[in-house]
């Protein structure tokens, strides 16, 4: 320490000069360190977001001269039955997927953390595996499962005595959207199992000791201690999954591309196909739908944030 202060004293006149020099050097360093990623963020993320407001007021196919049409895209959007149909499918997924993923993950996490089986570690890894597979792989895999003639599902059903014939689960309007759900759940559960197991394992044993002394059953421990303690993490998970059911569409794009007859079309996919699909492109209209999506997501996030905070006080 003494050495440290003494060198400081000796070097003082020199230091002022070197400080100035190092200030220039520091600013160059900062510029190089911040400009590329931050510039990329401004250019590829923030700027397009601002631009999308302008695009939503255009009639533009992306090639020819754009025509300014005011709010006509928005008027058309509210009268477009395909938009409403797609949104109703989002609503369906919104109701079913996040809740299913969280419930299945909670059950599996509880079973895994209840007792340390020798195969627990292997099971955790196995459960997580679908999460690192790409959507393309997951979608093709489930297409094999649902195929009418050679699909795994129909064969398994036949094996246990249910004859589904050549029913193609993704090809029928009545079942197609339902069929997307298991594929989606299958690909998401693993991550939440790991998150919940870690959260449950992190609860201090002392929380349980008094209750166990009082003779509380496993059920009481689960519902009075375990679940309330990890509730904040469960809520964040729900929020995350919910936002994803509103904006996610790559699973549908690969599995069915919205078919049959639009039975699995969701709002993101509808927008995507308007801009990048086959046939004529309408960048203006797609951007208007993008704006709608933006508003829905912000609203959903705000509502959930508020609801969650309120609930947070209850516990």
């Amino acid at each position: 320490m003494a050495v440290y202060t003494s060198t400081k004293k000796v070097k003082r006149p020199e230091k002022r000069f070197s400080l100035e020099k190092s200030n220039v050097q520091r600013n160059i360093f900062l510029l190089l360190a911040i400009a590329p990623p931050f510039g990329g963020y401004l250019l590829f993320t923030l700027y397009p977001n601002i631009l999308s407001v302008y695009y939503s007021l255009l009639n533009w196919d992306g090639m020819t001269e754009p025509v300014f049409i005011g709010f006509q895209n928005f008027i058309a959007m509210f009268q477009d039955q395909f938009v409403w149909r797609a949104l109703s499918h989002n609503l369906f997924l919104f109701i079913i997927v996040p809740a299913s993923v969280v419930i299945i993950s909670l059950v599996l996490a509880y079973l895994l953390s209840y007792k340390n089986y020798f195969e627990s570690k292997f099971l955790k890894l196995l459960f997580f595996f679908p999460n690192i597979l790409s959507t393309v792989v997951i979608a093709i895999l489930w297409q094999f499962i649902y195929d009418g003639n050679y699909g795994l599902l129909n064969e398994v059903l036949a094996f246990i005595g249910i004859d589904a014939g050549n029913f193609y689960w993704l090809g029928d309007e009545r079942t197609a959207l339902w069929a997307v759900v298991p594929a989606w759940i299958w690909g998401s559960v693993g991550l939440y199992v790991i998150i919940f197991v870690n959260a449950m394992d992190a609860i201090p044993k002392s929380f349980y000791e008094a209750a166990i002394m009082d003779g509380a059953s496993d059920w009481t421990l689960l519902f009075k201690i375990t679940l309330p303690t990890i509730m904040p993490i469960v809520r964040v998970s729900l929020l995350f999954l919910t936002l994803f059911t509103i904006k996610g569409f790559d699973m549908m794009l690969i599995l069915t591309n919205g078919g049959p007859a639009g039975a699995t079309d969701v709002i993101g996919l509808y927008m995507f196909n308007l801009a990048f699909g086959e046939g004529t492109h309408s960048y203006g209209y797609a951007s208007a739908i993008g704006m709608l999506l933006f508003v829905i997501l912000i609203t959903a996030k705000a509502i959930m944030d508020r609801y969650m905070k309120k609930r947070g006080i209850d516990y």
Partner: peptide, 13 residues
């Protein structure tokens, strides 16, 4: 930012 609402302008950029 949800990301996908800006797919079109991002493509144009």
């Amino acid at each position: 930012l949800p990301g996908i609402n800006a797919l079109v302008p991002q493509y144009v950029v």
